[in-house]
Computed example of a mutant assay.
Amino acid sequence: MKYARLELYVSQPRLNRFLRACGNSKTKAQKLYKINLRVAQAFYPVMNLFEIFLRNALYNRLSLHFNDQDWITTQKNLFMNHPSLAPSRYFLRGCVLKAETKIRPHPITPGKLVSEQTLGFWTALFDNHHYILLQGSIMGAFPNKPAAVNRSAVVTKLKNIREFRNRIYHNEPICFRGNSIDFSFASQILNDVHDVISWIDPKLLDYTGYFNNVGDKINLPNNL
């Protein structure tokens, strides 16, 4: 495809950053744009598995904490409605209510409510106001984490992963540091994802690894 046609449909402002990073070479800019998409594409199965593993690990842990397999339903008006959560506008409760509205008129089940929650719901459990109410029990979702890893360390990794994931899902570039071509942050996110998965269960890394070719795609800019 000619650069002018790509620019017409992708937009000049979006491509300009690629053009600047490639010394105004339209050929290289177009190639880098494709590489960026390939790296983003490679992250999809890894991120998908990460979210599923994290979601279920946290759900199972809180099922033990509340001694209730259906806590996402029953705690809507208990833990999620605690007065101390007013400043956060009862974020978790709001997420559950929103999911219920989306599911109706079909039967509302805990399983459906769980599957409707975004990554933001699960990472929000580590916000201090939720963490305190849960007495830190959610750290039990990571039985294999190093002893030195505390809530703050978990929050930092989850925040970076979620923001990076949103960049991918909203078609934002992930190949830059400033105006330079640099996939180092993407590499760091991949390491963070592997860390969190290994904290849940190191054996899950083998399963994730089967779908992981992010490293190969990150090395493609070497051929620009």
Rank of each mutant, 00 (worst) to 15 (best):
Y3I: 03
A4G: 06
R5H: 12
R5I: 12
L6E: 07
E7D: 08
Y9R: 08
V10M: 05
L15K: 06
N16M: 06
R17C: 03
R20H: 03
A21I: 03
A21Q: 05
N24A: 04
K31D: 02
I35T: 03
L37D: 14
F43G: 01
F43N: 01
Y44H: 12
Y44T: 13
Y44V: 12
M47L: 15
N48M: 14
E51M: 01
N56T: 15
A57G: 11
L62V: 07
Q69I: 11
T74A: 04
Q75G: 03
K76R: 11
K76V: 14
F79T: 15
M80Y: 03
M80V: 01
P87T: 10
P87D: 11
R89T: 15
Y90T: 13
F91H: 13
R93I: 02
C95V: 15
C95K: 15
L97Q: 15
K98D: 12
E100L: 08
I108C: 11
I108R: 05
T109P: 13
V114M: 07
L119V: 13
G120N: 01
W122Q: 02
L125Q: 09
F126R: 00
D127E: 09
H130Q: 11
Y131Q: 05
G136T: 10
S137G: 09
F142W: 01
N144E: 14
P146T: 03
T156L: 07
R162M: 09
R165C: 02
R165Q: 02
R167V: 02
H170T: 02
E172D: 14
I174G: 04
I174Y: 01
C175T: 06
R177N: 14
I181A: 00
D182H: 10
F183V: 01
S184E: 13
F185C: 11
A186I: 00
I189R: 03
S198N: 09
I200M: 05
P202E: 13
K203N: 15
T208G: 11
G209A: 09
G215M: 11
